[in-house]
Computed example of a mutant assay.
Amino acid sequence: MGTVVVTLWADLLIMRVIDDIRDQDYDRVADPQRPVASGAIQLRELSTLTAACVTVIVAANLFFHAGMVVIVGQLLYAAAVLAVGRRCPATRGDNLIVNLLIGVPVQLLLFVYLFAAFTQIQHEAPDPYVGALGIVILTLCAGQLEFGKKLARRPAIGERSYTNSLGYPTTSLLTIGSGPLAAVLFVVAAPASPLAKAFVALPAIGVTAFGIKYLRQKGNRWPAAVSALGLLGTLVAFAVVGAVG
């Protein structure tokens, strides 16, 4: 369990660093107060932080060979995306749909790692059905965060928002509906106890309740923290259910 928590923390921190580097040109215009865009944090400092996180990940997974292969593959892919982005501006993020498609393998590989860790904790042979179901569920949960952090009823001029690409109703549905759909899939198909199913569904229920309130109040911008907490809560719930059984 400790290996998974440390790896997840370090990996997400690396992904945040990569996103900040990819978005620095956009942030200088749209959000100049961000650390990289403002110059408060230098690229060499981010490189040092990334190297430290990679070291932590490798050390934590030294005896978890399957996990090591998956997480290293994910980091190499993310590094390749960053390198390509420097030479091909079209992949840096202005086109959110292209950016989403590019980022999907990063998420999928992280979820494959979590499934491998789950089987390691349970000491059972991997079940492809359970693994595929878990990855679909986690992908849906991550979707509520991805769409939620770029959901605005009235985006600012030049703002990267899925509202501009997909429309506000569709983006709202994806933000608020992805978590509940994941919970329904888990409740209907997962080989788990009713108590475990209820526990895993709680974060999605919370996001849905807030989403209903948000739509009724006709707020302009969806609070991304709500989706982030929903995703984090689901990951923690899965970890607890996997460890306890």
Rank of each mutant, 00 (worst) to 15 (best):
Gly2Met: 13
Val6Lys: 11
Ala10Met: 08
Leu12Ser: 13
Leu12Trp: 15
Ile14Glu: 06
Met15Thr: 15
Val17Cys: 12
Ile18Phe: 14
Ile21Ser: 09
Ile21Ala: 14
Arg22Lys: 11
Asp23Asn: 07
Asp23Pro: 11
Asp25Cys: 11
Tyr26Arg: 07
Asp27Met: 02
Asp27Leu: 00
Arg28Asp: 07
Ala30Met: 14
Gln33Tyr: 15
Arg34Trp: 02
Ser38Glu: 07
Gln42Met: 06
Leu43His: 04
Thr48Ile: 13
Leu49His: 09
Thr50Ile: 06
Val54Trp: 13
Val54Thr: 11
Ile57Gln: 01
Ala60Asn: 00
Phe64Val: 02
Gly67Thr: 03
Met68Tyr: 05
Met68Arg: 10
Val72Asp: 08
Leu75Tyr: 05
Tyr77Ser: 01
Ala80Gln: 08
Leu82Trp: 13
Ala83Gly: 07
Val84Lys: 13
Gly85Ser: 04
Arg86Ile: 09
Arg87Asn: 12
Arg87Met: 04
Pro89Ile: 09
Ala90Ser: 08
Arg92Ile: 05
Asp94Met: 09
Asp94Ala: 08
Ile102Pro: 02
Pro105Tyr: 10
Gln107Phe: 11
Tyr113Met: 07
Tyr113Thr: 05
Leu114Tyr: 13
Phe115Asp: 15
Gln122His: 08
Pro126Cys: 09
Asp127Ile: 06
Val130Ala: 10
Ala132Phe: 12
Val136Lys: 06
Leu138Arg: 10
Leu138Val: 05
Cys141Pro: 00
Ala142Gly: 15
Leu145Thr: 14
Phe147Met: 01
Lys150Ile: 06
Lys150Ser: 05
Arg154Leu: 12
Pro155Arg: 05
Ser161Arg: 08
Ser165Gln: 12
Leu166Pro: 05
Gly167Lys: 01
Thr170Met: 10
Thr170Ala: 06
Thr170Lys: 03
Ser172Lys: 03
Leu173Ala: 10
Leu174Asn: 03
Thr175Ile: 04
Ile176Ser: 06
Gly179Met: 07
Pro180Val: 07
Ala189Glu: 11
Ala192Pro: 05
Ala192Lys: 07
Ala196Lys: 03
Ala196Val: 11
Phe199Lys: 11
Val200Thr: 08
Pro203Leu: 04
Ala204Thr: 03
Ile205Arg: 04
Thr208Asn: 01
Thr208Ile: 05
Ile212Ser: 02
Ile212Tyr: 08
Arg216Met: 00
Gln217Pro: 02
Lys218Ser: 06
Gly219Pro: 00
Arg221Cys: 08
Pro223Phe: 09
Val226Ile: 11
Val226Pro: 02
Ala228Ile: 11
Gly230Met: 06
Leu231Asn: 09
Gly233Pro: 07
Thr234Tyr: 06
Leu235Val: 08
Ala237Val: 04
Phe238Met: 10
Val240Asp: 13
Ala243Lys: 13
Gly245Phe: 12
